[in-house]
Design a protein around this nucleic acid. Structure first.
Lengths: 153, 153
DNA sequence: ACCATCTAGTCAAGTAGGTTGTCTATATGC
DNA sequence: GCATATAGACAACCTACTTGACTAGATGGT
């Protein structure tokens, strides 16, 4: 049996379906002004508390200028704030505000809800395998290069 | 064990890794002027030979106007051509040219190469299960609504 | 200590890939 | 046969990104 070659489309629609669902719920909770990129920013910041714009840009797969614009926007909307960087006076350390923390808390909760729902449908071991396989295969496909988050379209 | 909540990122990077790889190979084969959206257009056209702009827009998750622009671009570059629609004189049936068929042939070949490589890594049954699970979970997450291909970012 | 080089962020302009709104011609259903 | 719906065209606009040039501060070699 030849491979059917529909995996790219499956990856695309699964991502889209998850993001749509999360966004719907967030909007109902008062976070209607965030898009997927913002969620990934929050997540990154919660694991890297003193991240800089350059760092974020690399993680997301956008230029540092675009990253700065993103941060500006989140700053204006009260999700993040900039502090002087502890060791490098050129840099500005980006931190989540209370509102930012509230939002990422909801984002992660929704991600986990979906994951739990999936575990109900196909079983927890299979979700674990899905996760593990995706990580393995992505890593191999990328050939060791870091893979940016932003989908090219 | 709580769900770890990294699945959205995994879906994003797996899609990105696959698309990057395919694009690299296509560029080396003389198809450097196509992006992921074009590949999905070609694929759709090869299964729906007389598709229209509206139809394509719905499939991709963009407006009909954006779909027309996309088709214009592919037309100018010689990948598709427009024919009078057999039954509806408002419509224009979009068809692949020889170059378009050559391109989608390569696209699908690369998709299948990746799938075969994945089968070497984790076994064919597990790739099949990955595919099936993704389809099931996407369907459930979307709640029956059709899911557009284009990733929101 | 000095100087060449590198790096973080800024400023400004440009572009890609969409969007919404409006219009015409054709199709469809009662 | 007429009201309504649909396909595509045209135009204006917008958002999220890009490239390029620049400044202030960091870094490393001699």
């Amino acid at each position: 049996m030849p491979p059917s070659g529909d995996l790219p489309a499956l990856l695309a629609v699964s991502f889209r379906a998850v993001m749509d669902r999360v966004h719907t719920h967030l909007a109902a909770e008062g976070f209607g002004d965030v898009r997927p990129a913002h969620g990934f920013v929050f997540q990154y910041l919660s694991f890297h508390p003193h991240a800089t714009a350059v760092e974020l840009g690399e993680h997301l797969g956008i230029t540092k200028q675009a990253a700065v614009q993103l941060i500006d926007e989140l700053d204006r909307r009260g999700y993040v704030e900039r502090h002087p960087h502890p060791t490098d006076r050129r840099s500005r350390a980006i931190g989540l505000t209370a509102r930012g923390r509230a939002c990422i808390e909801r984002v992660v909760a929704h991600w986990q809800d979906i994951e739990r729902r999936w575990a109900e449908l196909i079983g927890e071991e299979r979700v674990q395998r899905l996760r593990g396989d995706l990580a393995t295969l992505t890593d191999d496909t990328a050939g060791g290069r870091p893979v940016p988050l932003r989908p090219l379209w």
